[in-house]
Write a protein that binds this DNA or RNA. Structure first.
Lengths: 348, 348
DNA sequence: CTTGATCTGAGGTACGTACCTCAAGTACCA
DNA sequence: TGGTACTTGAGGTACGTACCTCAGATCAAG
């Protein structure tokens, strides 16, 4: 059997009370006693029984995800994974919820953040576009004892707040690598479409893309980023204009997580030859596109991982534990038609 | 606060003892009572407190991983992830170990399996080449009340035993897709190297590769699979012979998890133009190869996921729970230089 | 040596579930 | 109607940790 706190007390030559004081970092313990306990922990290989600890604490962790209101398909993926994680983690004392906030009004977001009180919520996972107001509100939250992590987009100055999401520079670079490889021996332009370049993730992806494209694929020239603002008609018109000016487009990179508008805009256009098309995130739309051959590859972050990673970070924050940030790095996954099905993958 | 068994008893109008009988599937309960309890569970949203349950059971799960003795780099990756998982899950009553078994002697493997007794071990994760003797020994284990899952390779007739690993047919198909895409506009041969075609995974990968290559990439012709038997010198000679016969090799697919011998065999060969090279699994060697440009892409299964998935399956087996097999599907990941770094990824 | 502050030990309760025993209840059959 | 088998309830202990109180020990400074 594994050693218990009782065994630990005996091994350290102190009382259970002192062991408790050391283990839970309470004050009023001589350094000598602390050392004795720590030494005994090492010696007998004591590991705190998490089940018992959680039970004794009978602690509930209430975490709130704040997601953009007029969400795209990827946001609905996220919310369904939140529900799933909530169900799975209920048994461990978790209570996960999500709530919609404005997509672009910093004042509304700030008001929502300021309205949150520690009595209701232990931590927040915030998915919101970058703005100084929001950043300050997040810091105020933290000062009120509420944990905050940034989800997916992140703020420019993270101010010691944690970030959950992929390295978007690397994601853009990955896209460039695939595009370059898929276009071996061809010369031409790469069209880049996104919802808005105001989003930090789009900026970083573009940066990573350019880096690899200019270095490794001089045969390809990236066009200026085009913005759809999530609007189909606008997407159609800007794309049509771009194609008229550049008949030699060989690849198209859809940078934003919402691929519907750009894909709709592309539907009835004509190019010299079928271009390579890359998009982000796995949704019903992009899955369909990949299966049918409309899309050539996807660059994806796993929404389940995002949610669970955010929860782990928030929980570590509440418990005052530190977390290896590198451990919470979200993988940049590449999907083609053939490895798409394996994407139902484990939680793990 | 969340409802407890006590609340559940009140809600169902029965005693705590009956609730316990229903929750833990004990016999001697009228259907009517069972229904009443289940109805109440739904109604009040009862979720068993896992921490309390684990504590009360004070159960230890002892799982043993059996890995091939003369393991390649990927096997060492696996064992280090087992140690990691062991440390992480100790607090939840897990005890994970691994042990080396013969790589190819079915009799020795069978002896090892038959020597395992339920007093020592609750479950086995077995990574061994396909053979009838081993399959039967695994079934005997199960009959003795020891859970068994097959890791990575799997047996032909799974006989109701669980399998943890990627869909190797799909992995081969993914490789074909990448090779085909990376060789756009080129005509030539695809060299296929593996340790041995006796392994089920190599067989299936080859099958998936051929399927996609013949359908979608008629410009590429796959050569017969070449076997290295893990030997550098042999690798050198077979590869040299193949290249002499086929100067138009445009791509090389290393199917086995051990890429060292084939890569060594390729090191001082000359081809008309630099071929595309794909390999499997992320090890120090393949990471280096990918970074330096020696390798163009990797097809990878995450060893941490494999280990945790095996543990979940074994534990579910011990607890008599069922698991959605689709939930335990291991992802087929594609790595290029740019998304390699994100591969330190989270557990979860 | 006294005083006050700091530290330690003893002992208790609580968390929610598992599992045990024993008595009492119900149903059915002969 | 009595006997038997099945079903239910009451009450208990146990798991390992957290957290509380209070008395007593130890220590440092005056």
């Amino acid at each position: 059997m594994r050693p218990t706190t009782k065994d630990l007390a005996v091994a350290a030559g102190v009382s259970l009370a002192s062991v408790d004081r050391v283990l839970n970092g309470r004050s009023g313990v001589r350094k000598k006693t602390v050392d004795a306990v720590n030494e005994a922990i090492e010696r007998i290989g004591f590991v705190r029984n998490l089940s018992a600890a959680n039970l004794a604490k009978s602690k509930q962790y209430r975490f709130l995800f704040l997601l953009p209101r007029h969400g795209d398909l990827f946001v609905s993926e996220l919310s369904s994974h939140i529900e799933e994680a909530d169900a799975a983690l209920k048994a461990e004392g978790m209570d996960l919820r999500y709530q919609s906030i404005s997509q672009n009004d910093p004042h509304e977001i700030t008001r929502a953040l300021d309205a949150i009180i520690p009595e209701d919520v232990d931590g927040i996972a915030l998915m919101a576009p970058e703005s100084p107001q929001v950043r300050d509100a997040a810091i105020r939250l933290k000062e009120r004892g509420i944990q905050v992590v940034h989800l997916i987009s992140g703020q420019q100055d993270m101010s010691g707040l944690d970030f959950v999401g992929i390295d978007n520079r690397a994601a853009g670079a990955t896209a460039a690598r695939l595009i370059g490889r898929f276009c071996t021996g061809r010369q031409g332009k790469v069209m880049i479409v996104t919802e808005t370049m105001n989003a930090r993730d789009s900026l970083e992806r573009r940066f990573g893309l350019d880096e690899v494209l200019t270095t490794d694929f001089p045969n390809l020239t990236a066009l200026p980023s085009m913005e759809t603002y999530g609007d189909k008609e606008r997407a159609k018109s800007v794309i049509a204009t771009a194609i008229k000016k550049n008949a030699d487009i060989v690849a198209i990179y859809i940078m934003s997580s919402e691929a519907r508008a750009p894909l709709a805009g592309l539907s009835d256009t004509k190019l010299q030859s079928k271009p390579i098309i890359l998009a982000h995130e796995l949704t019903d739309r992009t899955r369909k596109g990949l299966m049918s051959g409309e899309l050539d590859a996807l660059i994806v972050q796993n929404p389940g991982h995002l949610v669970r990673s955010a929860v782990r970070l928030l929980r570590a924050g509440v418990d005052g534990r530190s977390v290896l940030k590198s451990q919470e790095q979200i993988r940049i996954e590449i999907l083609v038609k053939e490895n798409l099905l394996s994407e139902v993958g484990p939680d793990t």
